[in-house]
Design a protein around this nucleic acid. Structure first.
Lengths: 344, 344
DNA sequence: AGTTAGCACTCTATACTAAGGAGTGCTAAT
DNA sequence: ATTAGCACTCCTTAGTATAGAGTGCTAACT
């Protein structure tokens, strides 16, 4: 447990380093208005804090910088009590209030706002579609050889895919197939569709339609391939403005990672459904961001859908501001979405 | 006009510098197998080439590097005669042969292949939709309050948008509106839709439907907002592997530019419909890429649709390889698309 | 007994110098 | 016309000196 004075000085050091990115000396701290003790006293306190593992030196006679343990303590014990999460943040409210935007668009926009407001890199994982159901299936023919298949879910999500019509399939068969499928599959959870198609519907379709196999093969390829997770990233270049990232090697590995959507998505999925989480430096499992801190927050779409928003920045991060912001945004997003899904 | 020997040495210098990114000395060149003259002779030739503006020195006693004028000469006068554009490149063929991919997917994939094959950054501008027509308009209601509107064009492009149903609009009105619109607007060029809606159809719709204004307002907002240009970028982080880009400042301005889709799109649009174009260093109008070379090639979808593919790399670029590759890809893409649109 | 001033000490950052090497341009010999 | 030889230029690297920021410790002060 830290004494009052240790706490005061520790906070002053963290704040200064977050702002300046430079090791903080005893002199600097002693000159702050709310600090009354002398530099020598501060040096003693600093030595104590270092002993406890909350501070580090870059070399024997340098100023101090917070260690990862220090940030962890700061986030867990100091911030927690200071944060009033039910605060202002009106910009977000205004933006999310428009009512005819589509889910994806709100998410996209939020990512950009978030990175603009913080100068860190924002990542938003679109809601995982856990319990959506098929609303309607359509095939629109465009010419003798081409058609576009459209799938609509009860959440308003639309998937579409152009394809070439196999020459053995007759026009009428397309319509019949779609009619039968809609009749039987309306309201069926997306996850069950492949099974339904493969097992129960094949024989039924065969009764009415010739060459159903080829057509089904196409439909399956079209709809039931792995759905990519929707990922929105904002302000990737913001990290280049942080003075600690001037090593091309590190920048390269950061950008390489960010180009790999799966890896980024997995990073966030680890924190799905766990409120606000702060992961500092080496606590991150991915090498490319072991010099970064990652703050994640989950938002709800309805009981069954959840997404994650996150900010990625230096370990020297404005934790207080960022946590407040993420909390506010997650809340707003949950609110904005709840309307959409209130009676599905 | 260059003499035979000047040409031989100039080519050797270009090739060496493209490979090494280091100033090239007379010694290095004289040691190459196909060069028989001595280093001293090469020094004389180098002085001549520098006099003509094709080479530069980084300092008085350094080796030579090609100037931008040098690259320009190389591309215009040397490469042109050496390129056999109707070459191999089978990887592309295989990938583009699958027949049920959608246009956008082919484009996306091409961008990735391109950057992988070259280690430069690839940019592809999706085909500009110049002459597409409305195929079908649909509104699918999801609940009492929400619906999704879907627009399908004759090219297989699908736009969709969820919206909230204005409380004053009756369910039946939605259907009637869609029916009337489909009847009247099928086959109408997309560009004419706003005009048609505003002028000719308002009175017709008013006859049948109450509160048509509000509904139309929504539909217009949904469909006729500026269509974003589709842009696909691959291998952004590749530029970090080039030794000449180690200045954080430049990297930052590069990445900032790449995050601005409009700016990137404009860059490519300048070269729309102009075959293969090479823009070297300061020839680029955009400051952020004045240290880069940009190679663009246009591909055709049909008589009315055209897109652009491009590669962005250091002025020290493997021009020969890149030009061949872009040409081959543009040709393959044109071929792959022609089928889709053969009878629209 | 806690706090602070003073001071020796450490380490970094910066500027300066020296040596080595790659490469040029010129001259004279082939 | 070509090339060997050589003086000269400039970059790079390593080494050295200096100023400055900051620490830890000791002794004096409240």
């Amino acid at each position: 447990m830290l004494t009052e004075r240790q706490l005061l000085i520790f906070k002053a050091i963290i704040d200064d380093f977050i702002a300046s990115a430079q090791p903080v000396g005893s002199r600097t701290i002693s000159e702050k208005e709310h600090i009354t003790v002398s530099a020598a006293t501060i040096r003693n306190v600093m030595a104590e804090l270092e002993e406890m593992g909350y501070l580090e030196k870059t070399h024997t006679s340098s100023g101090r910088i917070p260690s990862e343990k220090g940030y962890r303590y700061y986030v867990d014990n100091i911030l927690a009590s200071e944060l009033d999460l039910y605060d202002d943040i009106n910009i977000l409210k205004d933006i999310l209030k428009k009512d005819f935007y589509e889910l994806e668009e709100i998410v996209q926009m939020s990512a950009e706002i978030l990175s603009d407001l913080t100068n860190y890199t924002s990542i938003i994982l679109g809601p995982e579609i856990i319990d959506t159901k098929l609303e309607q299936l359509q095939i629109v023919t465009l010419s003798k050889y081409t058609a576009v298949a459209i799938l609509i879910t009860n959440t308003g999500h639309v998937e579409h895919r152009s394809f070439t019509i196999p020459p053995t399939v007759k026009m009428g068969d397309l319509e019949k197939t779609v009619n039968i499928l809609n009749e039987r599959l309306h309201g069926v959870p997306m996850a069950k569709l492949p099974h339904m198609l493969n097992e129960e519907l094949i024989s039924l379709l065969n009764k009415y339609i010739e060459n159903v196999d080829l057509l089904l093969k196409y439909l399956k390829e079209i709809f039931f391939q792995e759905q990519p997770v929707k990922l929105y990233i904002g302000g990737k270049s913001n990290i280049l403005m942080q003075p600690e990232f001037k090593d091309i090697q590190k920048i390269h590995s950061f950008y390489s990672m960010m180009e790999n959507e799966n890896e980024v998505a997995n990073l966030l999925l680890q924190h799905q459904n766990r409120g606000i989480r702060v992961t500092i430096g080496n606590e991150n499992t991915v090498d490319a961001i072991k010099d970064f801190s990652l703050i994640t927050a989950s938002y709800d779409v309805d009981r069954h859908q959840q997404g994650t928003i996150a900010l990625l920045g230096p370990t020297r991060m404005e934790y207080k501001k960022v946590i407040r912001l993420l909390h506010a945004l997650a809340t707003e997003m949950s609110d904005a979405f709840s309307f959409w899904y209130q009676d599905n």
